[in-house]
Amino acid sequence: MKHWKPVLCAVLSAALLTACGAPAPTETDVPAPQTVTFTDALGYEAAIESWERVVSLYGSFAETWMLAGGALVGTTSDALEERQLDPGEGVAVVGTVKSPNLEEIIAADPDFVILAADIAGQAALHQALADASIPHAYFRTDTFDEYLSMLELFCSMTGRQDLYEKNGLAVQEQIDAVLDAVAGQSQPTALLIRAYSSGAKAKGDDNLAGVILRDLGADNLVTRHESLLEDLSLEEIIAADPDFILVTTMGASDEAAMAFMADTFESNPAWTGLSAVRNGRYVLLPRDLFHYKPNARWGESYAYLAKILYPDLAAKLP
């Protein structure tokens, strides 16, 4: 069953929508910017009149802007350190993703600032940016649909419909192929854990790995054992005995997060009795596909997890 529908997160001018369907511009044939108006992820009304000097305060969104053919004058350090982006020479680093530097943002002289709706340090910048008359908008992309909408908006701004097709619609086709392949399979049970150096929590479909689990037809334990969201109890995990235990990590390193798992859970003799552990289905998921926003690699994320959940179908999956 096809789950994805192209959804615009913005109400664009008729002229801009016409430009979106036009051939990709050349260096000598760049369409004149049109005002773009939309309601962003925090409910603010955004009116963007120019996007020649763009600052992104989140590496994932910096990458999405670049995937749409846009250029940056500033971004946060995670774009370079975590996502290994190459935004080009002269691009300013305007602080960290959690603590962007307002003075450095203003010094970059942006005509459009892209922010993350779920990061408190960025949400707090709204009034200051408004007072400085700097156009800006908040986004979130916890699902492929949200990424696709963001990419569609950005490609309509840059006039690069070809990149929307390459980095959006083609990815949608990859995901649809995975969903078609797993349709009708027996529903495996899974426990999704996000681990870090000082703790671990069960996760539902409030993050991208949980969304993918749901879409692939897995039965995430937290849907029936909501108490796991508050207290990751080994006793409750043993009682439920999931087919799969899947771990994503956050923080400085995978090693530090998995050291916590080893000390807290794996050291208990009962852990080795779990079906998932005995059958080699206790799996650490790669950060680039399941912690960082996968953007144009959403299809890879779906295929990777589908091959874990349904190994017999691996040969049929993209």
Rank of each mutant, 00 (worst) to 15 (best):
H3G: 06
K5G: 03
P6V: 15
C9W: 10
C9G: 12
S13F: 04
L16S: 15
G21C: 10
A22S: 15
P25G: 13
T28D: 11
P31Y: 05
P33L: 08
Q34M: 08
T35S: 11
V36K: 00
T39K: 02
I48T: 04
S50Y: 07
W51T: 08
R53Y: 03
R53M: 00
L57S: 10
S60I: 12
F61V: 09
F61G: 07
E63S: 13
T64W: 02
M66V: 12
G69K: 14
L72N: 08
V73K: 00
G74S: 02
L80F: 11
L85E: 09
G88S: 06
G90W: 04
V94C: 03
T96L: 03
K98G: 09
L102T: 10
P110N: 02
V113K: 09
A117K: 15
A120E: 14
A123V: 15
A124L: 12
D131C: 09
S133P: 00
P135E: 00
P135M: 00
A137V: 09
D142T: 15
Y147C: 01
L148N: 03
M150E: 07
L151A: 05
L153W: 05
S156Y: 06
M157E: 05
Y164G: 04
E165D: 09
K166Q: 14
Q174P: 00
Q174G: 00
A177F: 01
A181Q: 02
A181D: 01
G184Y: 10
Q185D: 06
Q185L: 06
S186Q: 15
Q187W: 02
A190S: 02
A195L: 10
Y196M: 09
A200L: 12
K203V: 13
N207V: 05
L208E: 07
L208A: 13
G210R: 09
I212F: 01
L213P: 06
L213I: 09
R214C: 04
R214M: 05
L216E: 03
G217F: 01
D219R: 12
N220G: 11
R224S: 03
S227K: 11
L232H: 02
E236T: 10
A239E: 13
A240K: 04
T249S: 12
M250L: 13
D254E: 11
A256H: 07
A257R: 14
M258P: 08
A259R: 07
A259Q: 14
D263T: 14
A270P: 00
W271K: 01
G273K: 02
L274C: 02
S275H: 04
G280A: 08
R281G: 01
V283P: 05
L284T: 13
L285M: 13
R287I: 12
D288E: 15
L289C: 11
K293A: 09
K293S: 11
N295P: 03
A296Q: 08
G299H: 06
A303C: 08
K307T: 05
K307W: 02
K307S: 11
I308A: 02
I308W: 02
P311I: 04
L313G: 00
L317D: 04
P318V: 07
